[in-house]
Simulated scan of single mutants.
Amino acid sequence: MKRLLLSLSVLLAGPAVASAADLPPRAAPVLPLPAAPAVSWSGWYLGAHGAWLGDSGEAVRTDAAGVAPAALPARAGLRASGLGGGAQVGYLWQVGEVVAGLEADLSALDVGQGRSSLGVDGPFALRTDLSSQLRWFGTLKGRVGLVLPSLAPFVASSLVYVTGGLATAQIEHQGAITVVPPGVGPAARRTGWRPGFVVGAGAEHRLTPSLSLTSETLYYKLADETLTLARAGDRVGYRFKNDGWISRIGLNVRF
Rank of each mutant, 00 (worst) to 15 (best):
R3H: 02
L4I: 15
L4R: 15
L6R: 08
S9W: 10
V10G: 12
V10Q: 13
P15K: 00
V17L: 12
D22R: 15
V30K: 15
V30A: 15
A35K: 14
P37I: 05
A38L: 15
S40F: 08
W41T: 01
S42E: 08
S42V: 03
L46V: 13
G50Q: 05
D55C: 08
S56E: 09
A59R: 01
A59W: 00
V60W: 04
V60D: 09
V60I: 12
V60E: 09
R61H: 03
A76I: 05
L78A: 00
L78N: 00
G84K: 02
Q88F: 14
V89E: 06
G90L: 05
G90A: 06
L92M: 12
G96L: 06
L102R: 05
D110F: 11
D110N: 14
V111I: 11
G119E: 13
F124K: 11
L126P: 03
T128E: 09
L130G: 01
S131K: 06
R135L: 03
L140I: 11
K141L: 07
G142Y: 04
R143I: 10
S150W: 08
A152P: 14
P153Y: 14
P153G: 14
V155D: 09
S157N: 13
Y161S: 02
T168Q: 14
A169F: 00
Q174P: 05
I177Q: 06
G185V: 00
A187S: 05
G192L: 05
W193M: 11
G200Q: 02
A203L: 11
R206Q: 08
P209L: 07
S210F: 12
T217C: 14
L222M: 03
A223P: 02
T226H: 01
L227W: 00
L229W: 01
R231D: 04
V236L: 00
G237E: 02
Y238I: 01
N242G: 08
N242W: 03
G244Y: 00
R254M: 05
